[in-house]
Write a protein that binds this DNA or RNA. Structure first.
Lengths: 94, 94
DNA sequence: AGACTAATTAGGAAAAATCCTAAATGCAAG
DNA sequence: CTTGCATTTAGGATTTTTCCTAATTAGTCT
């Protein structure tokens, strides 16, 4: 859970996630979309992979990264518990 | 938006948020719940405040922190856009 | 005022994250 | 097998985060 939120805490990684919403992408294409070196993007992809947010799959010579939406849903559930399951000190509504 | 996710990316800060779900708490009481120094907790409370996740209010000699649920909802909306919505260009500036 | 309590700020050490260039790896095609 | 392409790993400099102790501010109560 911590790796998940940590992965979400960097703007580049959130943008990568956003890009992958449309479908899997090769890491070269991802790297090309940023004004950063490719190894730096690899590092961010690794952080996302550790968090379970993306998974790599070989496609011929290149490697595509796919967004794992279930991991996003985990974080979502955590935040939902905060808003939805909130109680006031005088009452408890189900 | 970045300060928000960054604030959520530390386990102590998430636990503080969880504690505040039941209602506002004095920072001393929050600090007492952790095996860390009080100044360290003050630092985490500041990170949460910067992110808009909590707001302090004086109560006599002590200061209570209240959870600002609307900030949580902001993060929630971001993640919801990732899972549920397939609309293009949600317009966030991360 | 003076003592006491609640909480923050200051200063700094240690650990982690970020980002780079250079070198290495894995794959495919000639 | 060799050459080249796509990507990752290694090593290191810089910045940021985290956490501590000590000192300080802000408020309360005799």
């Amino acid at each position: 859970m911590n790796a998940l939120f940590k992965a979400l805490s960097h703007p580049v990684r959130r943008r990568i996630i956003d890009m992958l919403r449309k479908g899997p992408m090769a890491s070269g294409d991802i790297a090309a979309a940023f004004d950063m070196s490719w190894p730096t993007i690899t590092g961010h992809l690794n952080a996302l992979k550790e968090a379970g947010l993306v998974s790599p799959e070989r496609e011929g010579a290149s490697i595509r990264y796919r967004l794992e939406i279930s991991a996003v849903e985990e974080a979502l559930a955590f935040l939902l518990a905060m808003t939805g399951a909130r109680r006031r000190d005088s009452g408890d509504k189900t």
